[in-house]
Nucleic acid binder design. Structure first.
Lengths: 243, 243
DNA sequence: CGTAGGTTTGACTGATCTCAAGTTTGGTGG
DNA sequence: CCACCAAACTTGAGATCAGTCAAACCTACG
């Protein structure tokens, strides 16, 4: 514990500052938290379903996703995660984890004991408020996800997912360019939007044929952002302060 | 304000006691909250999308649902609500409401100013913890909803929705019998599980033909609970302490 | 007893899945 | 540097689930 690397919590603090006003003392308290770091391969399990949540996990590098599985093994991805995201806030006050978190790319995570976070929250109401907001925004994104999967067509779903991912990525790191390597496979996109990988492929092809996106290898560039937004029926307000 | 009716908060307190240990002082503080009551018709709008949340709304009688709408007007129901449910906790720390809440039947609601709730939470950490849990369980139910709509077939989706509704209803009021009047129309069920009302009708017919449920008018009785659970792929653990 | 909203059913259409066969890509070892 | 391999992507053809449209039938309620 207490490794000498600087700034493990930098992305977290940047995010929490968007969610509430933090004082210098608040920031110091976060930086003083005892932590452990871990580097993982792609497809590593970061939070396992069923186990009680005793730690608090922060994604600092790479991409990850939360997922659930049906009894007959079909997978649903609930959300994609980018550096700065808290991966298991949803389990802080629950007795067992109801979903898994898995890395998509190789990734780095930082974990802190839940007891330390509870103490932090008790002493620092601004941080408590920021975490409340983070949890509520997460739920808001889940609500939009239900709408997307339940009431939109395949093409719209894929477009909406692209819009959300790009928007969140930009908000977390404004320097990220429009062109980016999509970290997830088409099968993972399908698992996120409730389609098969084959159909995702056809929908991406349609977007490409219509000149909305340009694909070179696995790197995707948005050629016509207004049209992508229109096709995806994307209104960013549900992201609240995460956008 | 401060009408003389007793026990407006009874169903809320009962629920919060399942979520955390409350002291006598905690219960007294809740009962002392200033409140307003309102009775509404079916299909009345209880929480409107877009407006900032300034009050905290509790459902005390009847049924309600949260919903969102796509740009082209298709509706998705996110969750059904029963007496004791808090209808807009999700907006407590957000700048604007991202979904509507509408009554399904005629209903009674009690509202309290958010400022009073924030004060209550500051003074009573047990209540704060119970509300955290409530919000996190709500999010857990949304995750299961994404899985249901994204990765299950029509028949499974309808069966799962019935299982969840019956289970939550039982937990909130153990005296409720198996046979019950379904408060929602088949169109509303369809909007909840991402199907058309026509298809919901066919799926209910299938369940009836297979002897899993019995319908007399709009009252439904579960004839074969184990089989309904199996068809719906229903594992109640995601309900955490709400079941 | 008439009306409106909800339910039921049928016939047809269309979106998405399934299965299956290539093709491309990126990484690895010779 | 090349050959090979596994994983991911691409495409086609046929099957199936769910949507659409339309009509008839309840049922509660004024």
């Amino acid at each position: 514990m207490q490794a000498p690397e600087p700034n493990v919590f930098a992305s977290l603090i940047r995010k929490l500052e968007r969610l509430a006003d933090l004082t210098h003392a608040d920031r110091m308290a976060i930086d003083a938290l005892p932590y452990l770091t871990r580097s993982v391969e792609p497809r590593a399990c970061l939070v396992r379903e069923g186990r009680a949540g005793t730690k608090f996990t922060l994604l600092t590098e790479g991409y990850a996703c939360r997922q659930k599985t049906t009894g007959d093994g079909k997978r649903q991805i609930l959300s994609f995660h980018i550096p700065g995201d808290i991966l298991d806030l949803q389990h802080m006050y629950l007795d067992w984890a109801d979903c898994n978190v898995e890395s998509i790319t190789s990734a780095c995570i930082v974990s802190v004991a839940v007891s330390n976070i509870k103490e932090l929250v008790r002493q620092h109401p601004n941080i408590a408020e920021a975490l409340w907001r983070d949890g509520l925004i997460d739920a808001s994104m889940l609500r939009e996800q239900v709408l997307n999967v339940g009431r939109r067509r395949g093409l719209q779903r894929v477009a909406h997912m692209l819009c959300e991912f790009i928007t969140r990525r930009r908000a977390a790191d404004p320097l990220a360019p429009d062109a980016f390597e999509l970290p997830m496979t088409q099968e993972q996109i399908g698992d996120a939007v409730g389609l098969t990988s084959v159909h995702v492929n056809r929908m991406l092809r349609t977007l490409r044929d219509d000149g909305v996106i340009v694909q070179e290898g696995r790197s995707v560039r948005v050629a016509d952002w207004p049209r992508l937004i229109k096709i995806g029926d994307f209104y960013a307000h549900y992201l609240h302060r995460a956008a």
